[in-house]
């Protein structure tokens, strides 16, 4: 455990819900509610879940882009919670983020070159301006862009190329860990594969660790070493990829796996999962999945929320029935 690059312990992020003129507190949205996991150097942890399950909030909270409500985050044994704003600002060089939407993630009024060069300038990574330009050029080539693209504005690029600029920006400070927040979901199928390959090449070359967030199990399966399944702010199953696919424990994981539409594999007349994802505003008593769970028993609504427990070696499940 001591060797982990990133370790998160019982992390919580609750958002207040305010109502009315005088902003009276009417409840909490428990977007992230007691999540613990660790990521080793050079490893990819996949995080899957449906929209609204809190995966983006989790990604932002572990980078302290959102202040955690409770819990601890350790990065190379530095406790992120305790860093002062200025220390944190310096520390940010080691962990980065890549976003889903290639259109809103780049400042429309800056050139591609200045977007990638800005962190180098702010963190004084180059002695001279010429050297900085050189570093930007190298970053452009590393992500598959031409050097002369530096002077163009974001709106002149296609989605896939914009995503490459975002990746170059994230790599500029030579981080060890990157949160990839649905980095290919907004891209076309033929462009998706290019970006996935690029992310893998970069990982091998720079021994990066990824937290790879996606709703698409196929993409997560391709990218990850281990996979964590998230439902309503909690992790319900964490296991090594092969283990998860061959031997899923949690009913939600099973349903997710069955719901993947495989091209060419005709699985007609599946009914899917009854009900819709609950609002995390009023989570039900007991296991938060029990209203939709096909196997739900009395114990699931009566008992406390099940905790993540190791059922087999390195295979963690949060379910009363297992």
């Amino acid at each position: 455990m001591t060797k982990s690059l990133l370790r998160v312990v019982n992390l919580k992020k609750h958002f207040p819900v305010e109502r009315g003129m005088l902003s009276r507190l009417s409840g909490w949205v428990k977007a992230v509610d007691g999540v613990s996991f660790s990521i080793d150097a050079g490893e990819t942890l996949g995080l899957v879940g449906e929209s609204g399950c809190g995966k983006t909030t989790l990604g932002r909270t572990i980078l302290r882009l959102l202040e955690p409500t409770a819990g601890e985050i350790f990065f190379e044994e530095t406790k992120l919670n305790e860093l002062s704003p200025e220390e944190l600002r310096q520390f940010r060089a080691r962990m980065q983020v890549i976003f889903q939407d290639p259109y809103s993630s780049l400042n429309p009024r800056m050139t591609a070159g200045s977007i990638v060069g800005e962190p180098l300038a702010v963190h004084r990574r180059a002695e001279t301006k010429g050297k900085r330009e050189e570093m930007v050029g190298e970053l452009f080539e590393k992500v598959g862009l031409a050097r002369h693209h530096k002077n163009r504005y974001p709106h002149e690029f296609s989605g896939g190329m914009r995503q490459r600029i975002g990746i170059a920006r994230a790599l500029a400070l030579k981080p060890k860990f990157i949160v990839c927040d649905e980095p290919v979901s907004a891209l076309d199928v033929s462009i998706q594969a290019q970006i996935i390959n690029l992310l893998q090449e970069l990982q091998e070359e720079l021994s990066l660790a990824y937290l790879f967030i996606s709703h698409d199990l196929r993409v997560v399966a391709h990218m990850s070493n281990r996979i964590a399944v998230m439902y309503l702010g909690r992790l319900v199953e964490v296991a090594v990829k092969e283990e998860l696919f061959q031997n899923p424990f949690h009913p939600y994981t099973k349903i997710l796996l069955e719901a993947i539409p495989e091209p060419g594999v005709i699985k007609k007349q599946k009914t899917g999962l009854p009900g819709e994802i609950q609002s995390s505003l009023n989570s039900p008593s007991g296991c938060s999945f029990h209203p939709r769970c096909p196997l739900a028993k009395e114990i699931c609504s009566r008992e406390e929320e099940p905790q993540l427990q190791e059922k087999e070696k390195n295979h963690f499940v949060a379910c009363h029935l297992r």
């Binding site: 962990m95 809103s104 993630s105 800005e118 702010v122």
Partner: peptide
């Protein structure tokens, strides 16, 4: 996202 990215870069 680009403002959050700037924050994540320690700008």
């Amino acid at each position: 996202d680009f403002v959050i990215a700037a924050e994540a870069l320690g700008i």
